[in-house]
Nucleic acid binder design. Structure first.
Lengths: 202, 202
DNA sequence: GTGGAACGGAATGCTTCGTTCCGTTCCAAT
DNA sequence: ATTGGAACGGAACGAAGCATTCCGTTCCAC
């Protein structure tokens, strides 16, 4: 479905802007909008034509990430082996860099109702996966622990994106093995509330 | 050695400013200087009397952290059991929140020569501890892997400082167990160069 | 040839700091 | 008491940085 000329450019720009926004804002959530336009090789005007404000752009990026998270959970669901389902879900989430979206972008915009609903769904799906993995995990591991692990992986970052992904997978492997080890853990697991402090208070 | 009046206040301010600066800048490296003054309950003037610029303040905070890192390494050195030495070193570093200093503050100032020298020393001491722990670790774990683990722990953060420390210890425990597990890891370990990208290019 | 959709990017106006400046407070020595 | 200066607090200044707007230009479709 090729469109020529301006129409073609417009389609390309749609994606270029979103891709650029993801890259720029994940590297620095406070980056100026102009940086996104530059990375996308688009004029600022073209960007503002699509997103009436920076906040709207941020919201879009984050909501897309949330949907990806859900997609990863649904992709891992059918896997019959509980542990494999759990592990591939986490690997998928880490690979998609979805966690960064949540961690870094939270608080830079006010969420929509739809986002809230999707977040609830995401939480349920993830919780179900964690539940399936629990028999293989050390005692006292809760869903929020898993969220924390994802945040930790998101902290791994080097300039090269591909290498970053590789290093994150390395770290995730170590973490997964640590999750299956024995022995007590200090303190109670984190609560959901403790992890949501970045979001605007209702 | 009590000093009365203004002198007493001056001594208190010295510490109050550094403490406040650590808290503020660790929470947000780009926080305004005024925020530090406010947290320290000090006028901006009092702060600028001691540190001629924001950069100088940042440098001081970071250098202090580096020295703490070295102190932790030296504290763990005498421990006879290799694994215990390795583990208590990491626990000490995480507890002191030294990693955050490196991760978050890097690039916000140009390091001094003395800092560079201390960094080399710190690296040597840490490398020695890792070497001692290596027999207990899974294959292919390098010193840079350990640095990465510290960065991951630094990513754990909730509003309450004490709870943050507790959660970090929890995560570190999982990581340490993961480090002792068996099995191959994807990709090569990070190199020192890969981890230093935040610092100003020589 | 022409109207309008889409572009690029300069210009605008505002906010956010780092830093300076100065009037005030407090102590110690006279 | 008086006073010189050390230390304060915080208002004010000026430089950036940025989100957003505006407008002249380009490119198709008709």
């Amino acid at each position: 479905m090729k469109r020529p000329g301006r129409g073609e450019q417009a389609v390309r720009n749609n994606e270029a802007i979103l891709t650029a926004a993801r890259e720029i804002f994940l590297a620095d959530p406070r980056a100026p909008v102009a940086a996104v336009a530059e990375r996308a090789k688009v004029g600022i005007g073209a960007l503002y034509r699509r997103y009436p404000s920076k906040e709207e752009l941020l919201r879009t990026i984050c909501h897309d990430g949330l949907r990806t998270f859900i997609a990863e959970a649904e992709r891992a669901g059918p896997e019959p082996d509980d542990w494999v389902a759990f592990a591939t879900f986490l690997r998928g989430v880490v690979r998609a860099d979805v966690h960064s979206l949540t961690v870094h972008l939270a608080g830079t915009f006010t969420p929509t109702e739809q986002m809230h609903a999707d977040a609830v769904l995401a939480s349920e799906l993830a919780g179900r996966l964690v539940e399936r993995g629990r028999p293989h995990l050390r005692a006292e591991i809760g869903p929020a622990d898993v969220t924390l692990l994802l945040e930790m992986c998101a902290a791994v970052r080097v300039p090269d994106a591909a290498r970053t992904a590789e290093l994150r997978e390395r770290c995730l492997t170590i973490l997964l093995d640590g999750l299956r080890a024995d022995g007590p853990l200090p303190g109670p697991p984190p609560t959901a509330a403790e992890l949501n402090w970045r979001w605007p208070k209702a």
